[in-house]
């Protein structure tokens, strides 16, 4: 099996930490700079509404690149977000890149020292959660090993972001909040993927032992490996007239409220034993 790259390993280990979106984005960006031979990195999330939010940028150049692209509404990052595939420009000076994004390429050359730009969509199914942007001060492509690692980073980062964005409640810890508060949907997560069940290994979504590897496996199982969960997300989004991310959030909130595993809630939905309604908040 393919070996995990160094940066992917670093990011995968973050599942054990209780981070908010900004802290997570900072660590992902830092890992890219440390391990992937890039000079700067930034992550912006793309909510359903038109505005984007830059969670983190490692330096002024990375931030300027984000601002430029979203202001001009063109560039590698915008294209990665729209197309859903990675966009790599290993040499911005090439004329083809200027014809692709005439204004953007000129502005980057004038305002920043960046010579190469790379943008990877952070996606889950049909949903693009955000974009990971990287730049280099000199032209050049990634090696095969770096590229594999970078794809791993994007995939795991997307999962972690999705997990944070759909977790039942805020970032407060289980021990700090009485059970009842969770009913308003503001309590903390409890199942394994939330990383909050530390004292309660039996609450983990997949019964994995409470170690880093277990969390890791539980995370990908819950969000990628189980077709029932994806099928249930599709059903719930029709039941409530919402998007996939919110449907997942509702399912997780319900699992938390009922103290059940997400996969069991998903199976109930697929088997039509459970129908989500507006009242179930």
């Amino acid at each position: 099996m393919a070996e995990r790259g160094a940066a992917t390993k670093q990011i995968a280990a973050l599942i054990a930490e209780d981070l908010d979106e900004e802290a997570l984005a900072r660590k992902v960006c830092q890992a890219c700079v440390e391990e992937l031979d890039v000079d700067g990195a930034a992550i912006s999330v793309l909510p359903a509404n038109p505005s984007r939010r830059t969670l983190w940028a490692t330096d002024a150049t990375a931030l300027a690149l984000e601002d430029l692209q979203f202001t001009l509404n063109e560039g590698v990052c915008v294209e990665a977000a729209t197309s859903g595939v990675p966009v790599l420009v290993s040499d911005l000076a090439r004329t083809s890149e200027h014809s692709r994004w005439p204004v953007f390429a000129a502005e980057v050359a004038e305002r920043t020292p960046a010579k190469a730009l790379y943008a990877l969509p952070l996606h889950w199914g049909a949903l693009t959660i955000g974009v990971l942007d990287l730049y280099r001060l000199r032209a050049g492509e990634f090696t095969a090993v770096q590229w594999q690692d970078l794809l791993g980073v994007a995939e795991v980062a997307a999962l972690l972001l999705l997990q944070l964005r759909t977790r039942p409640g805020s970032a407060r810890r289980a021990t700090e909040v009485p059970d009842g508060e969770a009913r308003r949907g503001t309590g903390p997560g409890v199942a394994g993927v939330d990383g909050d069940g530390r004292g309660n290994p039996e609450l983990h979504d997949d019964g994995h032992p409470d170690d880093t590897e277990g969390r890791d496996a539980a995370l990908s199982d819950v969000l990628f490996g189980r077709p029932e969960i994806h099928q249930a997300v599709g059903m719930v989004l029709v039941q409530l007239g919402i998007g996939p991310e919110e449907a997942l959030a509702r399912m997780r909130a319900w699992a938390f409220f009922e103290q059940r595993m997400l996969i069991d809630v998903a199976r109930d939905v697929v088997e039509r034993r459970l129908v989500f309604t507006e009242e179930m908040r």
């Binding site: 049909a126 077709p227 099928q231 599709g234 059903m235 989004l237 029709v238 996939p244």
Partner: peptide
């Protein structure tokens, strides 16, 4: 695969 499973859910429900 994730997208197709989600779409199956949409069609099954609808």
């Amino acid at each position: 695969r994730v997208i197709i499973e989600q779409a199956k859910g949409v069609i099954a429900q609808y």
